[in-house]
Computed example of a mutant assay.
Amino acid sequence: MICRIWHGVVPRSSADAYARFLERRAIPDYRSVSGNRSAAVLRRDETAVTHFMTVTHWDSEDSIRAFAGDDVLKARYYPEDRDYLLEFEPLVQHFVVTASDGPA
């Protein structure tokens, strides 16, 4: 199993709206792809900005490729992200899951 982690930063004033967007748009999109085992959004508020991380678990690189395209480490963005994000990090991180006690 592979854990895929994406990070983004938004102005603190936009954080609630972006969280709703991720819940409505991104989570269902991840979950619709065969081989996606789970998807979660993590949030950390700071004074001026809010950090978001999406953490997804996948059966294989092939299942990630079905979601992200041939360059599996390239971050995938939605058109609506332009309304929120302060920058567009080009890459995500992948980790092989070596132990887990959850359903993922």
Rank of each mutant, 00 (worst) to 15 (best):
E89K: 15
P90D: 01
Q93Y: 13
V33F: 09
D70I: 13
N36P: 02
L73D: 07
L91T: 13
E61M: 05
V10L: 08
I27P: 07
V33W: 06
R25L: 08
P11I: 09
P79F: 09
V96N: 15
T50V: 06
V96W: 10
S60R: 05
L22H: 03
D81S: 10
I27A: 11
V33Y: 06
M1N: 07
M53E: 07
L85S: 12
F95T: 02
V72N: 06
A99C: 06
R12M: 15
D16T: 13
A19V: 13
A15K: 10
S32L: 00
Y78D: 15
H94R: 02
S100D: 07
S63R: 06
H7Y: 11
F88N: 10
E89V: 11
R20W: 15
R4I: 00
Y77G: 02
L42Y: 00
S14R: 14
E89L: 14
S100V: 03
R25Q: 09
R37K: 08
G8F: 04
E89S: 13
R43Q: 10
L22S: 03
D71L: 04
R25P: 05
V33S: 04
D70N: 11
K74A: 14
V97Q: 01
S14L: 14
T50N: 09
H57F: 06
Q93G: 10
R24I: 11
H51R: 06
L91C: 09
D62N: 04
R37D: 05
P103I: 12
D62I: 03
S100C: 02
G35C: 01
Y18G: 01
D81M: 09
E80C: 11
R76N: 11
W6Q: 05
T54S: 10
N36F: 02
V49F: 01
R12F: 13
E46N: 07
A17R: 09
W6N: 05
H7Q: 12
H57T: 04
H7K: 08
L85N: 14
D83N: 12
A104S: 15
D45L: 00
S38A: 10
D45A: 00
R12S: 11
Y84S: 08
T98L: 15
D71N: 09
A68I: 05
I64N: 01
Y30G: 05
A15W: 10
F95A: 08
R76C: 14
W6F: 07
A66C: 03
L73T: 04
W6P: 01
A66L: 03
E23N: 15
L22G: 04
V92W: 01
S34Q: 09
G69R: 08
S60I: 04
V41A: 02
C3I: 08
I27C: 10
D62E: 09
R31G: 04
G35Y: 00
G69S: 08
V97F: 00
A39I: 00
R20A: 13
F21L: 15
S38P: 08
R25I: 15
S34F: 12
H7I: 10
D101G: 13
S63G: 08
